[in-house]
Design a protein around this nucleic acid. Structure first.
Lengths: 118, 118
DNA sequence: AAGAAATGCAACCGAATGGTTGCCTTTCTC
DNA sequence: GAGAAAGGCAACCATTCGGTTGCATTTCTT
């Protein structure tokens, strides 16, 4: 199980350039709103996603492209409309990464505490 | 517990403008590296954090300011050096938010499945 | 076939980002 | 007290970002 931990840790450190774009994609209020809207399992068209927003359709489109190239979302053309749906895997992976960070932090604290108390 | 769920959900939707900056702060490879370095519980000076990097001390400083204004990190002056340490709470909150997104997604899927199968 | 709906594409714009260099201040250390 | 170490501040620069407008294309609908 030490092996498991080490494997997880090395994956965590090695893939920073993978997660950075995912975090970045989520680092925008408009895009978080889009993700929230797409949490309903039915895919939504760009027009639907634009509706109610103060932004232009093209602005929304750009945001969707950002989310898409981060792998958080994918669009599929159907007829004249482009339906977007959530891709939950990156979210899960991100949670795993945060778990790891928190875990390492906790371990460091525990070691520190042990050192001080000893 | 329905209440609990609804309270959590409204907090999630209402505070998008709170964690967007946190996501954004983590959306940079250099800053993820800094966070990783600060996962060891001992605070590190800017010089220490710069050492080994190809970037300038000032560049690192700027990144630290970004992390700091997102609440992920905080610095305390001691003598002539500025020691930075991790602030784990925002990480936890972020994890909570991702949990919520995943949960809503799962629920939507479950409803969809139930509807299809019925 | 004609008009409306949904989208794509491209140019453009201002502001924010990521990075640098130069110089000044504070604090150690000899 | 002089020099080195650590850092702050400010100007500057290229690139990216978030957003817009204008126009062309594809697909429905009637």
């Amino acid at each position: 199980m030490k092996t498991t931990l080490r494997r997880r840790a090395s994956r965590a450190s090695g893939r920073r350039q993978v997660w950075a774009p995912i975090f970045a994609a989520l680092g925008d209020e408009t895009r978080l709103l889009l993700v929230a809207k797409l949490c309903g399992a039915e895919p939504r068209s760009i027009a639907q996603l634009t509706e109610g927003s103060k932004l232009t359709r093209q602005a929304i489109t750009k945001h969707l492209r950002v989310l898409e190239s981060a792998g958080i979302v994918h669009g599929m053309r159907r007829g004249r409309e482009n339906l977007f749906a959530l891709d939950p895997e990156p979210i899960q992976e991100l949670k795993g990464y945060l778990d790891l960070v928190a875990e390492q932090w906790d371990q460091a604290l525990a070691r520190l505490k042990a050192f001080v108390e000893e």
